[in-house]
Simulated scan of single mutants.
Amino acid sequence: MSEEGRGRMVTQTEADLDDATLVARSRDGDMQSYEALVRRYQGPMYRLALRMLGSTSDAEDAVQEVFLTVWRRLAQLQEDRAFVGWLYRTTTNRCLNVIRARRPQADVELDEHESTSTRTRPDHAAEVSEQMTALGQALTGLTPEQRACWLLREVHGRSYDEIAQTLGTTTQAVRGRISRARAQLAEVMAPWR
């Protein structure tokens, strides 16, 4: 291999590597590779936990616990390419356990990021804020399983099969939960149409 070729391999960053490579390196004890995975998926897992739990502190705790658990159990992952699905499953199950362990909270914070257009138009920002508050409250009215299915499908774009695997149920059950969640949310959100 030429000196130039070796230089390119050495300078390749974790951001350039695919998940399977980072997982394999992490399993071999490479903390930098695992940190790259955490940086890559911390945001989506936090948003999922925040929407499921309705509390920033609970979501932060849940995601921190998930990444610690995943690090400890990384050797148990059979296929490196299955990491993302495993991460979603672990996060969802952790959130469901937190929900079952406490009474549902009335307020659900959805996302602390505002779009540029809502910052420039205060009237629009107020309306969007009211809609997000209403949606957050509507989500707390769903069963934890319905909420998990709806969020994984509508917010995180997971397939019905992936959601079924994540929750350890059938695709038909997932479709039913999402259908009931959509109907219930549509009813509650009807004034906003």
Rank of each mutant, 00 (worst) to 15 (best):
L22N: 09
M52P: 00
G54M: 08
P44C: 09
A20W: 04
E79H: 12
Q137P: 06
A59W: 07
Y34N: 02
D30A: 14
A126P: 01
R100I: 02
A62Y: 06
A49T: 08
A148E: 07
T116H: 08
L53C: 08
E154T: 03
W86N: 06
A125F: 04
E79V: 15
L77C: 04
S115P: 02
D80W: 04
Y88D: 08
G43N: 11
R72V: 00
R39S: 10
L152G: 03
R27G: 09
W71R: 10
R103I: 04
H113Y: 12
V98T: 14
A24C: 09
S57F: 04
T92M: 08
A106E: 05
H124F: 07
D80M: 01
A101T: 05
A126I: 11
L142M: 12
Q137V: 12
T133G: 14
A20C: 05
R47D: 00
R94E: 12
H124Q: 15
V128H: 07
G85S: 12
E154L: 05
L37T: 03
E130F: 10
A75L: 04
S115R: 05
F83K: 06
R119I: 10
R121N: 14
Y41G: 05
A82M: 03
G136H: 11
A101E: 10
G141L: 05
Q146E: 15
T116N: 10
L110P: 00
Q146L: 09
N97A: 13
L77D: 05
P104N: 09
L110E: 04
D61G: 12
A126E: 15
R39I: 03
E145P: 06
V70Q: 03
A125T: 04
D111E: 14
R51W: 01
T92H: 02
S26H: 06
G136C: 06
R27T: 07
S117Q: 14
E79I: 13
L50T: 02
M31N: 09
H124L: 15
V155E: 03
E65W: 12
E109M: 14
P104R: 03
E79Y: 13
T143S: 14
E145W: 13
A24K: 12
V63R: 02
S115G: 01
V63L: 10
E114C: 00
C95R: 07
T118G: 00
Q146T: 12
V38K: 11
R73T: 11
W86D: 06
M31W: 02
D28E: 15
E35W: 07
T92L: 03
Q64R: 14
C149S: 13
L53G: 00
Q64K: 13
L87W: 00
L135W: 03
Q105R: 13
E109A: 13
E114S: 05
R47E: 02
A62Q: 06
I99P: 01
L87E: 02
R25V: 02
E35M: 11
N93T: 07
Q131V: 14
P122Q: 10
A49I: 14
R51F: 09
G85Y: 03
L37D: 10
V108C: 12
R51C: 13
Y88M: 01
R47C: 06
T116I: 07
A101I: 02
H124M: 11
L152E: 00
L53F: 12
T91Y: 00
Q78M: 02
T69E: 09
T120M: 15
L48E: 01
R25A: 15
E112I: 08
Q42N: 12
S26A: 14
E35D: 08
V66T: 11
L96G: 06
T133C: 11
D30G: 10
G54V: 08
